Computed example of a mutant assay.
Amino acid sequence: MESISTQQNHSYKEVETMASFSRRLAAPAFLAAAALLVGCSSGTAGEADSAPAAGNTDAPAYDLLPQEFKDSGVIRIAMASTAPPYSSAAGGEWSGLIPELGMAAEPMLGIDIEIVDTPYTGQIAALKAGKVDMVWGATYDNVDTEAVVDLASYMRSAASPMTLKSKNITLEEPEDMCGHIVGTIAGGGIQVYLENFAKDCEASGKPMDLRLYDTSSGATAQLQSGQIEVLLGIDLIQRYAAKTLNDGAVFEVHDVQVLPSIYGMAFTKGDTELQEAMMEAVRQIMKNGEYSKVFAAYDAEKYELTPDEVMINGVGAGKL
């Protein structure tokens, strides 16, 4: 697993934000050129540009930012580089639904966003250790997670099972996963769900063999090699993998969705000012249409929230 001290980071500038939507197909090459023009940083967690650009005090969410971020001109955000289509850093350039939401939100904040490449299983630890200022990823909003961090809702999600087409496995309901070798990502809500579900499988006389992995790509590789029979993962990630590998000839994503859920940006408990600033930035891109453009580009419209649904710890409060 990649250590936090050696993770990559990347600063987005406003010129990149505009290009990511108007020139989507050419984005990687254009962003590389833009990085040379605007001096994007690349280093380890905790580093910042030696002379941060002055903030845009007219940005809609700027006044809500804590003074320390107005002074530094940058927010360090943990994201995983191995979770397409949510986030990826293939070739050293960030892409995906979450980085593009960040690109759109950055002008609303008036300061830079610096992405710190952090494996999913280490994101909350990095936040608590002060390596990053917040986490923007596939963090499930549930009461257990809310006890550790504050979560600002920004999208919906669900989990779906994926199998090898060559295995001809039939999955029509969750119970059909019983009796199989099932894998998922360690440390998240799906693991908790499967651990509880495995008890029901055991009671039914069809025990489940549960395997855990650190990354989506690692789990997918285990499925492809036949080491596991079913991979229960985030629906968008599963469908992306099934669609892109060998033109859809390898994997099948079954229409058995479980764990309808809310994803939240994670913050240190009580970091109210930063939370309010980020939520306002997200509401602004919802209102100006950029939020929906990003979701449409990834066939994820059904997972959108409305501005009124962007809130802190909404699941625990029974509001989402």
Rank of each mutant, 00 (worst) to 15 (best):
K128Y: 00
V143T: 14
S157C: 09
L127E: 11
T139L: 14
D150M: 02
A159R: 03
V143E: 12
M155P: 05
A125M: 12
N142L: 01
V148N: 03
W136C: 11
A129N: 13
Y140A: 09
T139K: 10
D144M: 03
V148L: 10
T145G: 01
K128N: 11
S157D: 14
V135Y: 02
L127Q: 11
S153H: 10
L151T: 05
A147N: 07
Y154T: 10
D150P: 12
V148G: 02
V132P: 12
A147P: 04
D133I: 05
S160Y: 04
V132I: 10
L127V: 06
G137K: 03
V132Y: 14
R156W: 02
A138I: 13
K128D: 08
M134N: 09
Y140G: 01
V143H: 07
V143N: 01
N142M: 01
N142T: 01
A125H: 09
L151K: 05
D141M: 15
T145H: 04
A147K: 14
A125D: 15
V148R: 08
S157V: 06
L151Y: 05
W136E: 09
A152M: 15
S160R: 14
V132G: 09
A129V: 04
L127I: 08
A125K: 13
M155S: 10
D133P: 09
A152G: 14
A129P: 07
G130E: 07
D144S: 09
A129F: 07
D141F: 00
T145I: 11
T139N: 12
D150L: 00
Y154S: 00
W136L: 08
T145K: 04
D150W: 02
V135S: 08
K128T: 11
A159Q: 13
V143A: 09
A129R: 15
D150C: 03
A129G: 01
A129L: 12
M134V: 03
V149R: 02
K128I: 07
G137E: 15
T139M: 15
D133T: 05
M134T: 10
R156L: 15
T139R: 09
V132H: 11
S160G: 00
